[in-house]
């Protein structure tokens, strides 16, 4: 009797392990495509350039906002999720771009032309005309997206929302 009980107990233990191992494997198998699907949009997109207009559209010495589409736009995104940046045509003819994202928590900064300031409406960050911090909580200067001039057109490299720190 004792040996039969042992045998039954052994079988039971085997079946319990079998059940857990099989269902564990199946769960793992199902998790692979789920995780892959969820993480896929997090891949970094290839760099892209966006046309901002002719050089002549930018008055020398002035800084203005430019708005341009995301790198790989979906048909349903509309105009709500465009990118924006501040672009200045320097007096020497070169172009400088400043990220619209404050380096504190990512709120959009506003350029005040006559004051020569970028103001952040969230926590009162202030940057001077070179994008350096002059007041408030931002820890570092404004980021500078890359701009270039090709065939008389101003182009901006589509940049990530910058990672802080």
């Amino acid at each position: 009797m004792a040996s039969m009980d042992d045998a039954a107990e052994g079988r039971r233990r085997f079946l319990a392990r079998l059940a857990l191992a099989v269902s564990g494997l199946a769960a793992l198998a199902a998790a692979v495509p789920l995780v892959a699907y969820f993480v896929r949009p997090a891949r970094s997109a290839a760099a892209a350039w966006r046309d901002l207009g002719a050089v002549g559209d930018f008055a020398p010495g002035l800084t203005r906002k430019v708005v341009y589409p995301t790198p790989d736009p979906d048909p349903w995104e509309g105009t709500a999720v465009r990118n924006a940046a501040w672009v200045r045509r320097e007096l020497d003819g070169s172009f400088t771009a400043f990220s619209i994202y404050c380096t504190h928590t990512g709120c959009p900064v506003r350029w005040v032309e006559e004051g020569g300031l970028f103001l952040c409406p969230c926590h009162g960050g202030v940057f001077d005309r070179d994008g350096d911090v002059s007041a408030g909580p931002p820890p570092r200067p404004l980021d500078r997206p890359v701009v270039r001039v090709r065939n008389g057109r101003v182009e901006i490299e589509v940049a990530d929302v910058p990672t802080p720190g």
Partner: peptide, 19 residues
């Protein structure tokens, strides 16, 4: 993992159609 998390939240490098 900050950079990865950031792209995970935005579903890409910037705010886009999938966000």
């Amino acid at each position: 993992i900050g950079d990865f998390l950031k792209r995970l939240i935005l579903a890409g490098d910037v705010v886009g159609g999938a966000t």
